[in-house]
Amino acid sequence: MKKVIFSVFFALMGISLMAQAPINLKLNLVKGKMYRIKSISKQAIQQTANGQTFSLDVTSTSVTSCKVLKLESEVMDIEFKFDTIATKISSPMYNKETNSAKPAGNDPLDKIMNKMSQQTIIAKISTSGKFVDFVNFGKFKDNVMFVLDSIPAAKKDQAKSQAEALLKESAVKSMIEPLFSYLPEKSVKMNDAWETSYIQTANNVSMLILNTFQLKSIDNNVAVVSCKSEIESIPTNDPEAKVSSELKGSITFDSTIDLATGLRLTSTAKGRIDGTNTMKNNGTEMKMPMVIDSQSETIMVK
């Protein structure tokens, strides 16, 4: 009996120690191998202006492929290609669909997006998923901007300002940084929590994302992670900006991470952001309350 009790005790100790052994969640990508990450997000937006409420459904799909070019001192040069950037906007008054993977029509925005999907951009990413810097941002932007030569003169000015907004360094960074910003800087144990943060910029509006992750379980070489993200808009520093946002919200995630590669296999998220957008025009201001309900799913494409 004594032996059985000791055996059970040590077995439990062993399991417990195994469970408590820290795991190293790090990117461990094979050099030269192509990885694809697909993300679909659906946002139901309600905006109120002049007492009237407008609804807008936005579905965004993106497929980004990446390939490690070199690894030095825990920092990788990764080549990214935005294979698909598709957006579908539906509202009672306005519908628009763009897909960068499809041949561009006459619409300047389609042409810019299509050109973006044809170019590659290299960024330095640490093995803990931190964005370090771009290697060839200037060249990438110039290559995309060449598309303006094919746009008729009458639409060129508008297209240029659209392209400038899309190709802001912070906007392009926002398309890459969230792909890996779920990894901890140190080894973590079960139920450990860690924080990451980044700034998401799109359409000249920047939001601060503060993530708190927690390791829930490990099963079959896959880590299950939950996350709660606090989101807050950043006041613009541009005195000539026509729109300023005061938005706040939170999103919850459930993700699975492949321990071998450090890549996120699946991730589902749900959240809500609300606040006010302020439009400035010729000295007058119009405040527009806004609510965004969001759902998203990110998967590794095998």
């Binding site: 810097d133 200037g138 802001k168 360094e169 912070s170 960074k173 943060s197 700034i199």
Partner: peptide, 12 residues
């Protein structure tokens, strides 16, 4: 950190 092409800095 190094400021980017927009002069933007973010310290976490």
């Amino acid at each position: 950190m190094i400021s980017n092409s927009e002069g933007l800095i973010i310290l976490y």
